[in-house]
């Protein structure tokens, strides 16, 4: 589904990613872990198509097509979803309008009929239960006045509505208390099928107690320095990142 080959990325002349290689197949859950500043969020944003990054070399294919030449909205409509580390507030724009527009853009792209207001509200109610979203939140402006936890729930709620093929969760666990964490993880797991894949970007292991990865990769200094099964996450939790840093000569 997703194939990253030898990817180098710079921001304002500073090299952040230094030769990333990663293969993601349908049905898989990959965790990308690593200390702060290792390039985790950069990788997530590059896949979603954020502009400020300069791709200096390497390639990324998504369903055998060049992903990097596609506009961010095109990537989104083709099934790439980024759950933002810091979801953005858009004052004055009601959640409902925002979501209906997003859902219908996806439907148009697939050649499906756009949903009418009533149909959309029905769909929305269905998906709200999944992450225990409250109606009062969907009546507000996009992310405005949401608590940290509500914002993250809102991201997963949007994921449920848009049904992505590849979901990238960027530090979705940050700022969540244990109950919210469980709710969010429950939502992600419920959306899991053999057809879609998830990349979980996280600093801590605790989210991986609830979203169990098939593969764990350690990103350090712009490179994936270690890949293994879920047991690697426990090892990191126990020993911290220092031994990784030492192994890689720093």
């Amino acid at each position: 589904m997703l194939s990253i080959k030898n990817l180098y990325v710079s921001v304002e002349g500073k090299e952040i990613l230094k030769g990333i290689n990663l293969e993601v197949k349908p049905g898989e859950v990959h965790a990308i872990m690593g200390p702060n500043g290792s390039g985790k969020s950069t990788l997530a944003n590059v896949l979603a198509g954020k502009e400020e990054y300069e791709i200096t070399s390497g390639e990324v294919t998504y369903f055998n097509e060049d992903l990097l030449e596609k506009a961010p909205e095109k990537r989104a409509k083709e099934g790439i979803f980024l759950s933002f580390q810091y979801p953005v507030e858009i004052p004055g724009v009601p959640m409902v309008n925002f979501l209906k527009t997003a859902v219908n853009e996806h439907r148009k792209n697939k050649g499906e009929k756009e949903l009418k207001a009533g149909e959309f509200l029905k769909l929305m109610r269905e998906k709200m239960d999944l992450v225990e979203m409250h109606t009062q939140l969907t009546n507000r402006s996009v992310n405005e006045g949401f608590s940290g936890g509500e914002k993250k729930k809102n991201e997963i709620f949007q994921m449920a509505l848009l049904e992505p093929k590849l979901a990238i969760l960027d530090e979705t666990d940050s700022g969540l208390d244990i109950d919210a964490l469980k709710t969010v993880a429950h939502g992600v797991n419920a959306l899991k099928t053999s057809e879609n894949a998830t990349i979980v970007v996280t600093h801590y292991q605790r989210l991986l107690d609830y979203i169990v990865p098939d593969f764990v990769h350690v990103l350090y200094n712009g490179k994936i320095v270690k890949s293994a099964g879920k047991e690697l996450a426990f090892e990191l939790e126990e020993k911290g990142y220092d031994w990784i840093k030492k192994e890689n000569g720093n």
Partner: peptide
């Protein structure tokens, strides 16, 4: 970018914002 990532192109996003 947040709108883009949800499949909404820039022109529509600006209209909304």
């Amino acid at each position: 970018f947040y709108c883009n990532q949800r499949g909404i192109d820039t022109e529509k996003a600006i209209g909304m914002i």
